[in-house]
Design a protein around this nucleic acid. Structure first.
Lengths: 225, 225, 225, 225
DNA sequence: GATGAATGAGGGTTCATTCAT
DNA sequence: CATGAATGAACCCTCATTCAT
């Protein structure tokens, strides 16, 4: 429903052309593809992939049914294109940003969490994740794409931060190096919760994530086995 | 397909009848319903709810297609009946079992985790959860049922344990009272991970849950804000 | 349009059953399949295979669209079943009949021609042949089926007759042994002519085939190289 | 695909213009139409009329899809224009050539057959005939065109030859005058055979046509009714 | 004139649901 | 009660045709 585009701030894959017309056409093309992907996300989220009708996607994108096939070859390809377009860029950007920071491991972890809240949980990208969670097992290659382009990057970044913390003595435990998934598990749960139960049993996501971060820092820095 | 029945150790919803024949018939009826639900779980898990064909369910249950409609009024009702039948009992049982223990909060938490591993993660009940995660959003009442009968019970139990720990001074932090979800978040993540990524990037679930428990105990018991 | 059934007089593939109901059902099944194939022939001949709509076939057969798929797995399979059902039997029957005759080669050839006129040109089977001629190149396996089950049998029979004629001295020429196709070429042409040009330029098919037979007999029996 | 043009030696339907530029444009126009028709024949032969995609025709002709509609008003009109353009000329030419010969009826008949083998069976014109045979019934006017411009001419020529043979006493039989179709029936069969069965059961077309001609001559010249 | 992006009607196929036996 | 043949609505995808550039 929220119709903000999936595209991040830095797309920039528009080729520079000297002739006016082709450049304009290429822009139109990109814009229309974006409209179709946005519409598809809306409809897929609302009905689920299988129940979603391409006709509804087309209507919401303001194009005819057949037009979709000028941009993607099939319904499933539409889902994949949608997943691809909503990820990658931001995750890669934050990885470089955080790694370049001259800061402690804790500060980097907090920076990462801040980014996640601002760029993922606050945006439509969280909807893309939800879509992946509910549809990916049906399309194994979707899971592969997502693992490679998002999960992989995220875990690598978490491991790097954990390694820094351990190397500098900031963290006494290497738990996060071994299981970086533990850092983001509450984020995943929050995502599911808001999708399923928020109406009937609201959860203070911000508070939970703050508490989680505090617990993790205490556990990693504190004494113990 | 693992064909162990969904029914836990406490079925017991067979009505006692004095007249022999009807009782026998009622038993047959229950057995056939159980067969249909089991078959439905198999097929729904294998294909997903929408892609599952009722004909396959019927074949696997050893009945004719039309027979299903003598037990449930529609495909969706079949899913709901399936979800209802596979939960409740075990969770309620463990709640009573754990609360009755004469033990510290930590021991109770460990007991709960042990139960989860043994009775959920190791069985096909985890598949029911996965089915709920991927299909429930499509049927809001499914989410409600699940929240009321499973999530609610689990969180109540967790809060009770956390309260005991705080009250006795065992836990310095009340984090778990406020956000019991944090305790099970890694379990949810493990469930999703094994469903989606286990083949391409195996995760040591046991190790992760052990580590998680250790971190949580250290964080709750340790010094800090 | 002509709604005489494709099935010849000797179907007889009904299994004898002791139990009444199944036998009846099998009969119903055969009858319905026959109705569908007849309807399909009508529609395919009228519109051509590709333009034919399965909905029209169903309507003409008096069944619902989906019912067709209980008998054949696809539109193309419907065409193939149709071709198979309209052939085989009659050709095989005439082969045995003619070969069993105690007659001269000429008499056998005349008997074969008489049969073709009566059992093929005078019936719906000629429509099946026309359908094969216009659609087979699109479905190579259709050509194979037809060649194996009809053409092969016909040419074998013609060669046998020609061989008898040569062996007994009745025919001076072995032309028909080498090219049995020459005997039936006018029949093929007649088929095409009646399909395409009969309205605008009528052809006396009977007269032409009589003349053809006379010419062939004279040429085979007469003196010459 | 053999890309020899359909146009015979006698195109000549270019209007003479006095103004230079329009003449040039008219030539371009004709050339492009020719390219489109040639491409259409290729594609129609390869896929059949209904399955052929106008986009493929356009691509093979080196023009855009819309351009076709500047030359023909519809797909069906394209087929008709194609059939018209590929016939007439050659048949008319051979009619004049053969009739002008100072030769016996047999020699004329052999000359006609030689022409057919060289100018039809050896070229892609045979493909046009095949296209007519498989598609014409769908478009009755196509059959009319073909009958008027090709069949009519051919039969008229055959009748003239047969009449000469009878008049001079060369032929004792008037069979060919009454049914000139008998002379070309094996040619039609050969065309169909090569289209459908050549791969699975090769036929010596040359040998068959030679044998046919020999049989016909013997039958026409020999004694008998 | 030429282009090719856009259109949208059309049809084969699937499958949840019904109901006569 | 049980069956499974029959139904027909629903939907993805194709492609002939149009038209703004």
């Amino acid at each position: 429903m929220t119709s903000q585009s999936l595209q991040g701030s830095a797309v920039a894959n528009r080729q520079v052309r000297t002739r006016r017309a082709p450049a304009r056409r290429e822009e139109d093309r990109q814009a229309k593809l974006r409209a179709i992907l946005d519409a598809a996300l809306d409809v897929f989220l609302e009905k689920g992939f299988t129940e979603a009708r391409l006709e509804d996607v087309a209507a919401r994108a303001g194009v005819a049914k057949g037009t979709i096939y000028l941009y993607v070859p099939s319904k499933q390809a539409l889902l994949e294109a949608l997943i691809r377009s909503g990820i990658g860029g931001p995750i890669g950007a934050v990885e470089q940003h955080v790694l370049a920071l001259d800061a402690s491991a804790e500060e980097k972890l907090r920076a990462l969490f801040a980014f996640l809240r601002k760029e993922i949980l606050g945006t439509r990208r969280v909807d893309v994740v939800r879509l992946v969670l509910t549809e990916a097992w049906r399309f194994p290659q979707l899971a592969e794409i997502y693992h490679r382009e998002v999960i992989g990057t995220g875990l690598r970044l978490l491991r790097a931060i954990a390694a820094q913390g351990v190397a500098t003595g900031e963290f006494r435990s290497d738990a996060l190096m071994r299981f970086p998934q533990l850092a983001i598990a509450p984020g995943v749960l929050a995502l599911l919760w808001t999708s399923f139960f928020q109406r009937i049993d609201p959860l203070d996501v911000e508070g939970m994530l703050d508490t989680h971060l505090a617990l993790v820092m205490r556990a990693l820095k504190g004494p113990g086995p």
